Simulated assay, not measured.
Amino acid sequence: MKKLVVAGVATLGLGFGNAALATEGTITITGFVSDKTCTINQGSGNKTVPLSSIAMSSLPAGQTAGVTPFTLEFSGCSATKVRAHFEPGSNVDAATGDLKNTEAGGSNVQVSILNDAQQRIDLRNNSNSQQVEVTDGSATLLYHAAYRAPAGAAATAGSVKTTVEYSMDYE
């Protein structure tokens, strides 16, 4: 009798297990690995962008100031178009899409990355990023970095330092 009860419970358990494993849908993931590339010119791969010192009064709540241009330059491109894709890493603020100040005891500001038209790029999803045509195997991407005071608070005094990683998209 004991063996029959154990066998019955085991069979019953298998039946419930199947009900819990019913499929609800399918997720299809697609992509493309490109053979297109460019050579990142010397000084463009790892870059330091020094922002000018500004007065706290120049940066009221929610505003941007101290806009500083920088470029990423490429040569030997087999692609026809290039675009930098900023990676949404740990320095990207999930609420604002700007870069957090990682300097301990530094200012409360963040850093915005702007495109060539000085529109803010949301680093959470790369909206407003730009793509440029390759001409004679070369391309230059113009960006800007700028201080951004938090919404609802003026900038405080202190150092600013942050980083963002990027990868290249080629067409």
Rank of each mutant, 00 (worst) to 15 (best):
T28E: 05
R120W: 01
Q110S: 14
A151T: 09
G31F: 00
P50S: 04
Y147C: 01
V9Q: 07
G17T: 04
N108P: 02
L114M: 14
L72H: 04
S167K: 14
Q118V: 11
V132M: 08
Q119E: 15
D35H: 11
A104T: 15
I27C: 01
I54C: 12
V164Y: 03
G137Q: 04
L21M: 10
N46K: 14
A61V: 01
T102W: 05
T30K: 07
G17W: 08
S34N: 09
T80I: 12
S57W: 06
G62V: 09
K47Y: 08
A155K: 06
Q131P: 08
S107I: 02
C38D: 07
I121E: 01
A95V: 13
Q63K: 03
C38Y: 12
A145D: 08
L4I: 12
S112R: 00
G158V: 08
V109Y: 05
A146S: 14
Q42K: 15
L4N: 09
A153M: 10
N126C: 08
D122M: 02
F16N: 03
S167R: 13
T140D: 10
T30M: 05
L12H: 01
S44T: 10
I121W: 01
Q130P: 01
I121N: 00
V92K: 02
A117T: 08
V9G: 04
T64I: 13
G8P: 07
R83C: 05
G15L: 12
A154H: 02
A95H: 14
N126P: 01
D98G: 03
M56A: 10
Y170E: 02
T68F: 03
K3D: 13
Q130N: 08
E103C: 01
T48S: 11
V67L: 10
A155C: 00
E103M: 07
S58W: 12
R83L: 07
I27H: 06
M168T: 06
A55S: 15
A154I: 03
I121F: 01
A22Q: 12
S159Q: 07
H85F: 10
H85R: 14
P150M: 00
I121L: 07
L99G: 04
T96E: 01
S58D: 15
N115W: 10
N126H: 09
A145L: 00
A151H: 06
A94V: 12
E133Y: 09
A20H: 10
L141K: 03
I121H: 09
I121G: 05
N125W: 01
V111I: 09
T30W: 02
K81L: 07
D93M: 00
Y143A: 14
N125P: 05
S129D: 13
A84L: 11
G25K: 13
G76P: 09
V164G: 02
G158F: 09
T162M: 05
D116F: 08
A22H: 15
A155T: 00
I113H: 05
N18V: 11
A149K: 02
N108E: 04
A65E: 04
Q42V: 13
V111D: 04
E87K: 15
P60F: 03
